[in-house]
Design a protein around this nucleic acid. Sequence first.
DNA 1: ACAATTATGTTTGTGTACAAACAAAACAGA
DNA 2: TCTGTTTTGTTTGTACACAAACATAATTGT
Lengths: 162, 162
Amino acid sequence: MDVPAKDNTSSDDGSPSSTSGGGDQHAQYMLGEQIGFYLRQANQRHVAIFASLISEKLTTTQWAALVKLKDLQPCSQGNLGRETAMDMATIKGVVDRLVKRGLVHTAPDPTDARRLVLTLTAEGEATVSRNLSIALQISQETLGTLSPAERMMLMELLRKIC
Amino acid sequence: MDVPAKDNTSSDDGSPSSTSGGGDQHAQYMLGEQIGFYLRQANQRHVAIFASLISEKLTTTQWAALVKLKDLQPCSQGNLGRETAMDMATIKGVVDRLVKRGLVHTAPDPTDARRLVLTLTAEGEATVSRNLSIALQISQETLGTLSPAERMMLMELLRKIC
DNA sequence: ACAATTATGTTTGTGTACAAACAAAACAGA
DNA sequence: TCTGTTTTGTTTGTACACAAACATAATTGT
């Protein structure tokens, strides 16, 4: 069988080859051991779990905006962005889509012509209530097999690096 | 003054909650305590640190692709995607941009007409070497004030939930 | 050999995420 | 008051991230 000499081209994992050139520094940087790589993957997994368990077509950020708005309303668009860790350009897109779906209502602020005042519509409120228990379940599922102590530890460590 | 305590957009702050129907469940779901919210923010902060410390205009995913490709080359596009946790559509965009910048070279696989074989160009190899120490520094900076024990713990916990 | 299935890659569409340029309103200091 | 700065929001452009539809090549089962 003519298995081509070294075809990393398929999913077979070869031995770590020391390629030509000064590779000793490279040996210290393994992508699979970097915190950034872990964070990206963990977040990807969470988003996937969210998408699979939520019944309505809501994204994690849309959900965050809805839940936060329920607490803060009436609330300006910029403030909602700050509270949900989205910049102005991002929160605008999120809010626009929620408005288009009839979950959020916008109105100009009578006391400050720059501001856009957001409130949940009845359907928006209902959507939050309807999905609260599922959202909790998603958080639990994301934490997977971690023990209660480990869960607390992970949250605390993440809080520290934010 | 950061974040005026409540933006509730000017005056009236009514005590929220207690809409008709079970509002007490909402008390149990605080966005700021959900793992997904932490993961998203931690990743955002890492990406920001990366962007601020890297000199050339490289993204975290582009860097991941370059570093992994240095180890795996020659390597198919799909396999590189798998190894860097990107789906086919995403890795294609990343590779396309790296090719356009002259850091990656593509060629058809002679033994499998479906496959696209990727290799680093000389400039691609140089880019990896040139930024390795900065990349390590970025990882350290992301872990911020965590002690060595905490760092190990965080990585281990993230690995468990991936 | 042939049909069904699988693997690999492309394209399109939607949705974050953010930088940068822009506009308009509010505010502060001289 | 007037002027300069800050705040709030919009728009444009680039870059992940992924679903879904598509095309083609390779593999498998019979």
